[in-house]
Design a protein around this nucleic acid. Structure first.
Lengths: 133, 133
DNA sequence: ATAAAATCAGTAATGGTTCCTATTTTGGAA
DNA sequence: TTCCAAAATAGGAACCATTACTGATTTTAT
């Protein structure tokens, strides 16, 4: 259970911290193969899961496609483009949403909330103009 | 493109409308096999997808496990129990949350929002008391 | 140095979902 | 009614993301 050092995990973390986007496990795998040609996809998954469990990164389950991973663990929201699939940070302060439900009649223990927005991103909106695909 | 009648789809819809929980495609498949022993899982998926596209039901993608389907298409939220996996309606009026983000500086087209809550449901909380599994 | 524990690469297995094909059902028109 | 094209079906293969298993390798405390 004690976590030992591993070059692979170190690089995975470094890669995530260098990313503005929100890569999938497969994106990370592709990037890692440049440095570790023999790295296994399982290794990528294991380390992403471990890092997420330790709170060093966040795992995003945004419906379609694979899960994504975010180096930014501060509370914030995301926007998913229905057309190109891109995931970007959403400029809405996290607690603008999450504050209102403190005293409602719910009998279970509320631990958290998942919220994301979807639609068409700016880039796809502009490219759609003159009828191109 | 014109939708034709089908007994299977009719029964799938009837089953969903009789459900208080939020069954998965496989739940629906199991239920349908009682009436159509040879029904195909593909048929269930195709019809659930069709009904969702036509707005007669709602498809819920709540992270873990398979998608779920809800006969109630009115805007409302859900609570997912992290322990038993149950999905229940969440007693928070939908527009208490969804109103705040009209005039923020976002350049894309916002079409919708996905929000759900997670934690431990009342039943799991109570059963966990005396140390049983 | 050494040995236990953690991690690894490689690969098989899983679960949920979609896709394909030949056959059957539906619904409008002859 | 009967005929026909479109839509739907059952069955099964294929697909994708993820997890599980294995025996070899690396890390780290002694």
């Amino acid at each position: 259970m004690a976590t030992k050092y591993s070059r692979q995990r170190e690089q995975i973390k470094a890669y995530l911290y260098s990313c503005k986007d929100h890569p999938t496990a497969d994106n990370v795998y592709s990037a890692m193969r440049r440095q570790f040609p023999n790295i296994s996809l399982g290794t990528v998954y294991r380390n992403l899961t471990l890092l997420a469990r330790q709170g060093e990164i966040t795992k995003l389950s945004l419906g379609d496609g694979g899960d994504r991973f975010d180096y930014d663990t501060s509370p914030h929201y995301h926007f998913v483009c229905r057309q190109c699939g891109s995931v970007t940070d959403f400029p809405l302060a996290a607690d603008e949403l999450s504050s209102s439900f403190t005293n409602l009649s719910f009998d279970g223990k509320i631990e958290g909330q998942v919220t994301y927005f979807y639609g068409i991103c700016a880039s796809c909106l502009h490219n759609a103009g003159p009828g191109e695909k």
